[in-house]
Design a protein around this nucleic acid. Sequence first.
DNA 1: TACAAGGATCTTG
DNA 2: CAAGATCCTTGTA
Length: 585
Amino acid sequence: MAEWQSWWRRKLALSPVSELLSSSNSSSNSSSNQFGGSKAPGMSQSASQAVRQSEMEYEKMMYMPGGEMPHSPQLKPHQFQAQTPPDQYSAYADNFDLSLLPQESAPIPTTVFQYNAPQIKVECAWDSQPLQQQSQQQSPQPAIPYPTSGHQLIPPPAYPHSAYPSPQSSPLQSEFAAYGFGRFGGSYDSLNSPSPSLEAVSIKQELHILPPSPPESNCETPSPRSSCGESIKAEPLDAEIEGLIDLNSLLQQQSLQQDTKPDHQLLRECLEDTSFQKRHNLKPLALESFIGGLAEVRGDFEPVISLALEHAKREADAICAELQISQDPNGWTPAQVHAWLRSTLAQFRLPAVADLELHFCEDGAALTLLSEEEFVLRLPESGSTLHAQLEIWKMAYADQPAHQQNPQQQQQQQQQSHQSANGNLWPASYAMPNLDLDYNEDSEDDEEMETEAAITPLTTSSSTSPPAATPTNGGAAPQPATKRPNGGRTGGGGSHIHLWQFLKELLASPQVNGTAIRWIDRSKGIFKIEDSVRVAKLWGRRKNRPAMNYDKLSRSIRQYYKKGIMKKTERSQRLVYQFCHPYSQ
DNA sequence: TACAAGGATCTTG
DNA sequence: CAAGATCCTTGTA
């Protein structure tokens, strides 16, 4: 009898996914943890919208009658019973002592329950489908001894005993908890072992059999993570669950791909931002007690991010194939833009727009430049969602290595690069800078540089286009032809770029760089450097000048005063500069 | 202490 | 040679 129960508990407690997600959210902002919000501070509106949207999609999926998910953890036992043929359920229901599970109304006993939904939702933000697809593709027929199909596979607990999942907060987390107990799974025997192992100790702590370890006790008490990671056993049941949906294999795949260190600023910011906690004097959760160190936790964001991006790519692939469009929104024709918009509207069950062509006459490149406000202005009902989806596409595409792009795109990039070398276009170095690269310490610079080199521009350059007119003082202002810098950097560090161009690059991607530099008044060309250290560091990186600092950077900026590229603002403010007219366009 | 301003000189492409 | 990078001094908030 207790076997099922303890299986559930261990499964939920040991789930590396739930653990990872829990740790992610607790190590990062806890805004929605503690205030129930769905938007993380520091998270861009678009990203949060994406998260919101994906949340809606997920909830639709989860609460859909006869839900499409293999099994729905948020279902209460009685619900499960109602939806499950009695004969199948009765096969094991008698042995499943529901009374031993906590009541639904029971108070959440630990702050660990203050789970941050957005991080979870980021996982599914890319699509509601992949989970199903994967479960179908990777394990068409799970051979579970208890239920007969994945659909009725497991009676979800009233809600998990684990400290991590909370059904009130998100079904998905429970979903992960239920699914995630795969090849990372810990030892089943640990709880019942006559001499409880360290794993058992930590497991029991999570089950509230023992009080949680204090943060400083993490040395003595290994985290479930460590126990999971180190004692991988091929439990038959694990393998079967694994067959249902192999999130863990996905995580493993992604972890293998971590060499490439994909950069996803929005996700990362969302996951890592602790500013909200600081602002509100919120005490971050004691991760060390069950994770084993913040650094380790941070390192584990990568699988989540990669997994999310993987889902996004899969979705994009499918839609691209269906619509016959490129994955790079920049390459879309207006007609393809319309096709994508319609597809996205349908995907999110948003009201169709009859005169879509009138609202969006842009091609893909121009579309990517539209702000969320512009989207909403044109389509109040769905603009935000569309913009968020576009952001996701751009992220997914930006993550795509060049060799995966279609030949046309590669040719286009080569052509642009060649033209750049001829001085007709923007320098080949022209690529969107990403401040995310600056988040880490210098020791990781090498990796960051590799990542940076792999980044394709998130936005296009109309906002960063050089001015057509020469400065009024006749200074030697560069006049590269306006061209979308789709080709990205072609190596060499991009040392030819001018500082003012670089600053406009940063300014052109507020979602990425908005915390470091932002427009104060776009029309007047007034901007503010919010983080002088980061901007200087980025500039130094771009110019291959490791010793660059804001003092030097600002000196260079001041040189622009004489050249008529920049000027002092009317009301002098610290860190606030203004482009002269042609350069602010 | 951080930033602004600007002179002088050196480095790089 | 242009554009920065670097170093410096002085002043301000």
